[in-house]
């Protein structure tokens, strides 16, 4: 049982271990003073799960991806002073080789 667990853990690790990651980039919101949130889904159109928030840069690196999988990303932003949240950006697709 322990061996099986170790093997499956190693297998799981090996699929991440090759260091697959997705580099995301987007254009700034027209509203100044916002922070960005990055969402990911394995299905086109969502539902999306937030993987990063409070981002002030216009890039994000997702290193929690697995080989052979396809991911869909969207980004939105939050205004700092009144907490209003924008609509999602366009959806971007990443196929991990």
């Amino acid at each position: 049982m322990k061996i099986l667990f170790t093997i499956s853990l190693l297998l799981a690790l090996s699929s991440v271990a090759c260091g697959a990651e997705v580099k995301l980039a987007w254009n700034a919101s027209s509203t100044p003073g916002v922070r960005y949130r990055v969402y990911r889904s394995t299905k086109s159109g969502g539902p999306y799960r937030m993987i990063g928030s409070g981002i002030s840069a216009l890039t994000y690196t997702d290193s929690g991806v697995f080989d052979g999988k396809t991911y869909f990303y969207v980004v939105n932003c939050r205004e700092l002073n009144d907490n209003q949240i924008s609509k999602y950006s366009n959806q971007a697709k990443a196929v991990i080789p």
């Binding site: 995301l24 980039a25 991911y71 969207v74 980004v75």
Partner: peptide, 19 residues
């Protein structure tokens, strides 16, 4: 006055896998 307009969404999102 207050302006409760939603912030503009980010645009031109790209996702590039990097090995």
């Amino acid at each position: 006055s207050v302006n409760l307009a939603l912030p503009g969404p980010p645009t031109g999102l790209t996702a590039v896998p990097a090995p």
